[in-house]
Write a protein that binds this DNA or RNA. Structure first.
Length: 875
RNA sequence: GGGCCCGUAGCUCAGUUGGUUAGAGCACCACGUUUACACCGUGGGGGUCCCCAGUUCGAGUCUGGGCGGGCCCACCA
């Protein structure tokens, strides 16, 4: 396709315009397959990109436009460098946001115990915002739920695709995936089974951070701290030996029935005498030991803390390291369990517990404070404080800690050899910008457990395992039954393991499916394997993996980036990609991160339609990787101006190409025809820009490349074109005219290619004016300095521009039109530059409208007007 | 508590191993309709490079200490 990049006779529109270019060229690119990945290309000639799959249940915002533009600039540059770019697009429709949206939109909820209903019709097809109350939601099977998800996502994906196309992303739209589709589920389950077989995935019954709203376990990476009001409650625990109270201060008095010990620092002289003694838990009568541990802070509260199972993660550490018993009192719903834990044996203790049973932790706290005050065990009133509390990042209530059986994947949180290896992967990866590597290191070094990958949700990729039930109907978790890899994906809630029948489900001696689904990151961490078709296309996988680039946001280094590194390390013993490009956030003019809640979000499509895609891309391209950028409409207007200038300057230059050749053929752009020193100077300066821009883009510094190109382009327009205008129009001898026209054509040819990654629409439009149908600037070869004539002196253009500026300034200060003529003028230039300036004398005279111009060498730093006589234009 | 990034013109930002008089665009002011472009052109004004102290012949740049802004992590009784 479009192999013919040969220039033809230019056909330049009378009034070039940016309007409609997005639709026009998207249709053409789609028709011609301009961005289609050519299968069969050897790995060394492929550049593959692990595009972030946007969450389709959310909405796109300008931050997406910003960062995806950065990636597209890379893709277009690499493609022009001759690499075959593998640039897929995924849609993230797996996980809680989609689950909630499908529930509300269709009025359903997922119940994996139900069988698939092929004729199911959703009861409700509502608009967003009008959610169906949970009580009215119809339960449906997981396969039905997945179908609805795919149906709803398909609508979103159309909108997203339209936006990406309008923005000009050079994605290969035949390479798409959904994180909940058949292929992604199969890939996710296959990777899990391999992890299981190698012992990297394992189950454990252990205290787990638990969200009581979603009723699921959450992983370390999904936590965030929020400052919350709380209060210290000073409560006395009487020593068993003498009845003298020991006072602790707690923010969670409702957990007193779960108390298993008091703990103080081993060096704390106040409490050293107590170590080994027992105290009595107030209200409940349990006897607990006073123990020592170095994590107890002497300066917090009263310096001695109660250990509960479990109030926070420190409790878990104490419980584990000091081998304390377990007294759980909080259930999966976040309420106090109906029955008291072991250890509360007295009648009064049971009575006190009964006061709390069934209450939420919030209500239980109020009640127990009343009880403690009534019994005299609490001193004074609660003392209000604010303190950080752990939340699930998507949750609204503080996390609790409950003991549950969960699946874990080794990620270096426990295995220090693995941690060292993963830190090594962080070193091996090229980071843009480099300082982002530190965030990865900090995170890996701070891991305190393996990756908890199971979620007690219904929608998602199920764990592809069943468990045999023994004669008493109890599952044997240690010997899971796994499916054949060829059968994936499976749903253990509806599929039956080999050797069993559906009738044996849940029966003694039969089997039961694993009820959980995987963490959304457990699937997203496999985007390279999904996109490159690890599971089902070995040739494509070999040609694209490990990938070249992972572009992503800085806030998900600890989740998406790290998890992807883990999966590739475990499965392929390699990095998933060699480079990571980390984009910054978009800030509103008040320097706050843009967010919906602040009501300052601009819809991307409206922005593109208002300013034009090249303009918005220009704004994005002006910001470096990893640096937060302001949302600036002004910058987009500059981008639009640049795009229009490209059209107009091209119109000017191409007009002479049409004149310059014999009828029906274009002027041959023969570098040897460029003989004039000024023309050769301009092309020499351009050659430097080509080298600089190429180096910058190769180093993922698109800002520097754009800046160099843009700066040159404005000089080219304002000085060079003005200087050679008359000559290009035909003044002077034939060789001089041909030199100017050829130089204009050569420069334009190079400039369009330099701008192509940034301004794909304007450059393609101009390219089409003088290239064969189907030829695309985006499949043209990235310019090399060698294609321009060597030996020109850049100083000629620089000095000619300065002298011209001197003449312009005189007219401006005289408040005269630039058309005003000098009867005569003398400009003194630095002696060292005199020869260079003289070389352009004719063009300077012409452009400056000087009937007589003398250039004199002198001891000046910049050219200066030393004598002049201006003649106002007549009329 | 640990770490990272940032602080340069009214605004958004460049300033590459230390080296002339610190730059660009926007905004602002003045002028000009000039056959590529009024979606334009030409010219101009505008800075205590956050502060202090060092290193150096020389610091926006390097070192140390502050101040201010943003972000990440942290066992949060």
């Amino acid at each position: 396709m479009n192999s013919d990049q040969t220039p033809r006779l230019p056909a330049v529109p009378d009034r070039p315009s940016l309007d409609g270019l997005e639709d026009k060229w998207n249709a053409a690119w789609s028709r011609l397959g301009t961005y289609t990945f050519r299968a069969g290309t050897p790995r060394a000639r492929v550049y593959s990109i692990d595009t972030p799959p946007p969450t389709v249940s959310g909405s796109l915002h300008v931050g997406h436009v910003f960062s995806y533009t950065h990636t597209d600039i890379v893709a277009r540059y690499q493609r022009m460098c001759g690499l075959e770019v593998f640039y897929p697009m995924g849609w993230d429709d797996n996980g809680l946001p989609t689950e909630r949206r499908v529930q509300n939109y269709y009025g359903v909820r997922c119940d994996p115990s139900l069988p698939y209903d092929p004729d199911f019709v959703p009861p409700h097809e509502g608009a967003d915002g009008k959610s169906v109350r949970a009580a009215d939601q119809v339960p449906i099977s997981r396969p039905n739920f997945v179908e609805l998800c795919e149906r709803l996502s398909a609508e979103d994906e159309k909108q997203f695709e339209a936006l990406w196309r309008h923005l000009g992303l050079s994605i290969d739209w035949s390479q798409t995936y959904q994180t909940i589709d058949h292929h992604a589920r199969a890939t996710s389950q296959l990777a899990f089974l391999r992890n299981l077989a190698r012992g990297e995935a394992y189950q454990q019954l252990a205290p787990t951070l638990w969200d009581v709203t979603f009723r699921t376990a959450v992983a370390q990476a999904e936590l965030e701290d929020r400052e919350r009001p709380g209060a210290y409650h000073r409560v006395g625990f009487k020593k068993v030996s003498d009845g003298v109270p020991v006072y602790i201060e707690t923010t969670r008095p409702e957990l007193i029935p779960a108390c298993v010990a008091l703990v103080a620092h081993p060096d704390d002289p106040r409490y050293q005498p107590l170590f080994g003694q027992e105290v009595e838990v107030p209200l409940f009568g349990t006897r607990v030991p006073v123990v020592a541990h170095h994590l107890a802070a002497q300066d917090k509260g009263s310096g001695i803390a109660m250990v509960c199972t479990f109030g926070d993660v420190t409790d878990v550490v104490w419980w584990r390291e000091l081998h304390l018993p377990t007294r759980s009192i909080i259930g999966w719903d976040g309420r106090i369990l109906a029955d008291p834990p072991e250890g509360i044996d007295t009648a009064s203790g049971k009575a006190a517990y009964a006061e709390l049973a069934g209450l939420t932790t919030f209500s239980a706290q109020k009640r127990i404070v009343e009880l403690l005050q009534a019994s005299g065990d609490m001193v004074g009133e609660p003392k209000p404080i604010t303190h950080p509390v752990k939340f699930f990042e998507k949750g609204d209530k503080p996390l609790e800690i409950v003991s549950t059986r969960q699946w874990y994947l080794k990620n270096g949180g426990v295995d220090l050899d693995l941690r060292a290896a993963l830190l090594g992967r962080g070193q091996e990866l090229d980071w843009y910008p480099d300082f982002m590597r530190v965030r990865y290191q900090n995170w890996v070094e701070g891991l305190n457990s393996d990756w908890l990958i199971s979620r007690q949700r219904f929608f998602g990729v199920p764990f592809p395992v069943w468990y045999p039930l023994d004669g008493a109907g109890n599952p044997d978790y240690d010997h899971p039954i796994t499916p054949a890899e060829a059968d994936l994906p499976i749903d253990p809630a509806s599929d039956v393991p080999a050797g069993y029948t559906e009738a044996q489900r849940g029966q003694a001696g039969g089997f039961i499916g694993d009820p959980d689904v995987m963490d959304t990151w457990a699937t997203s961490s496999l985007t390279p394997q999904i996109a490159c078709h690890w599971r089902d296309d070995p040739d494509l996988f070999a040609a694209t993996f490990p990938m070249d680039l992972r572009p992503q946001a800085q806030d998900i280094i600890r989740t998406w980036l790290f998890a992807t590194v883990v999966r590739a390390h475990l499965e392929a013993a390699s990095l998933p990609w060699s480079k990571a490009a980390i984009s910054g956030f978009i800030l509103d003019p008040d320097r706050k991160k843009m967010s919906k809640s602040k009501g300052n979000v601009v819809t991307p499509m409206g922005l593109l339609e208002e300013h034009g895609s090249d303009a918005v891309r220009y704004w994005a391209a002006c910001a470096r990787l990893g640096t937060d950028a302001a949302f600036e409409v002004g910058q987009m207007k500059i981008g639009r101006r640049l795009a229009i200038k490209i059209l107009n300057a091209s119109k000017f230059a191409l007009g002479f190409l049409a004149e310059g050749g014999t009828a029906g053929t274009p002027l041959a752009l023969d570098p040897a025809a460029v003989t004039d020193p000024l023309d050769r100077s301009m092309l020499a300066a351009l050659a430097e820009v080509v080298a600089k821009a190429g180096q910058a883009l190769a180093a993922y510094d698109h800002v520097r490349a754009l800046e160099a190109t843009e700066t040159f382009f404005w000089t080219f327009c304002d000085d060079y074109i003005e200087l050679v205008k008359d000559r290009a129009h035909g003044q002077g001898d034939l060789a001089a005219v041909a030199s100017a026209r050829t130089a204009l054509g050569l420069a334009l040819d190079v400039l369009l290619r330099l701008f192509a990654p940034f301004q794909p629409f304007a450059t393609e439009e101009v390219w089409s004016w003088w290239h064969a149908d189907g030829a695309s600037v985006h499949r043209a070869t990235w310019p090399a300095p060698e294609e321009l004539p060597a030996g020109g002196d850049p100083a000629v253009l620089a000095l000619a521009g300065q002298v011209l500026g001197v003449l312009r300034k005189a007219k401006s200060e005289a408040k005269l039109s630039m058309r005003a003529e000098f009867a005569s003028a003398t400009v003194t230039v630095p002696t060292a530059g005199l020869a260079a300036a003289q070389a352009a004398l004719g063009d300077i005279k012409s452009a400056g409208r000087a009937r007589a111009l003398t250039l004199a060498g002198g001891d000046v730093e910049v050219p200066a007007l030393t004598a002049s006589e201006l003649v106002p234009p007549e009329g």
